[in-house]
Write a protein that binds this DNA or RNA. Structure first.
Lengths: 127, 127
DNA sequence: ATTATACTTCGCCAAATGGCCACATATACA
DNA sequence: TGTATATGTGGCCATTTGGCGAAGTATAAT
C-alpha cells in the first residue's frame, strides 16, 4: 500500500488503539485462523469480531482469504521494511508476558485442537 | 517505566491514535518547545493542547520541564531499546513527506524566530 | 431447490473522545 | 502585596467508537 501520509498512519494507530484488536494481532502471530476461532478466544459476538477484522484489514494489518464458508485471516506476509511492521514488533516484544495475552495463547491452543464446525455449532448454541 | 502489559501498551497506542498528538510528537523531534509554541503551530485552544500533552506524558511519550511561567515539553532522552521508541521511529519514517507535517515544520520555523511572550500575547488577543 | 451455516452489514445504544470556554493554579513583575 | 500571565483542570457538548442483535449474503449440504 505504502501510503505514507498522516491519514494512512492514523488508520494504523487507531486500529492499534483497542485491546481486542491487539489481542487479535497477537493471535495472528501464531498463524492463520478463521473468524469463529477468533470469536472463541475473544469471547465477543461474531459481528463485533468481524468489524474489528475489517478495521485491521483497512489498515493493512491483516489480510483475509476465503475458503468455502470460512474466512481465514492472517498477518500480511509482506516486506518487513515498509508497512507497519515496526509498531507490531514493538507490541510483540512489549506484550510477551502480558497475562491477558498469555491466557489467549493458552485458549488458542485448545481452540485449534477442535474442528471449526464444532466451534461454530457451540457458538450458535450460546446465542 | 517499562510496564510491559496490555494496559500500558494501550496507553501508548491510544495516545498515538490522534492527528494532533502525532503532529505534536513530530514537532518535538525538532527539539524542546513550550506550550504556547505548540499552540501556535497546531492552531488549537491552549486548554486542548494541554490535555493532549498530558495524554502524551501519561504514555511516557513526552516529558515536561517547568521554567518560570513556561512549561517546556520534549521527547524523553532515554534508552532507545526499551520504551515506545519503535512506533515513534516508524511514524517518523512514514510521515517524513506528509504535507501537514511539512507545513507544521515550516510554521515551526517561523514560531521559534519569535520570543514566547509575543506568541502568548497574540494568542490572548485572538481569544 | 431448499435448508443450513459462516460471515458481513445495518441499525441502534451506551461509553469514550476531542473540542471549547470558564475557572483554578502558579509564577513573575510592579 | 497585588496584578498580570502561562498553563492546568473541570464542565459541557458534538462526534466517534465499540458492543450487540437482526437481517443480508454467499457457499455447502441435503
Amino acid at each position: 500500500m505504502m501510503r505514507g501520509d498522516l491519514r494512512g498512519a492514523l488508520r494504523v494507530t487507531k486500529a492499534l488503539a483497542d485491546a481486542q484488536r491487539i489481542r487479535i494481532l497477537m493471535m495472528l502471530e501464531r498463524g492463520e485462523f478463521c473468524v469463529c476461532q477468533i470469536v472463541e478466544v475473544l469471547g465477543l459476538a461474531p459481528s463485533t469480531v468481524s468489524k474489528h477484522l475489517s478495521i485491521l484489514a483497512a489498515a493493512d494489518l491483516v489480510v483475509s482469504r476465503k475458503d468455502g464458508r470460512w474466512a481465514y485471516y492472517r498477518r500480511p506476509d509482506s516486506d518487513p521494511s515498509a508497512g507497519p511492521r515496526a509498531p507490531l514488533d514493538w507490541l510483540n516484544r512489549t506484550l510477551q508476558d502480558d497475562p491477558q495475552i498469555r491466557a489467549d495463547r493458552k485458549k488458542l491452543a485448545a481452540v485449534v485442537a477442535r474442528r471449526p464446525e464444532e466451534l461454530c455449532r457451540k457458538q450458535r448454541m450460546m446465542a
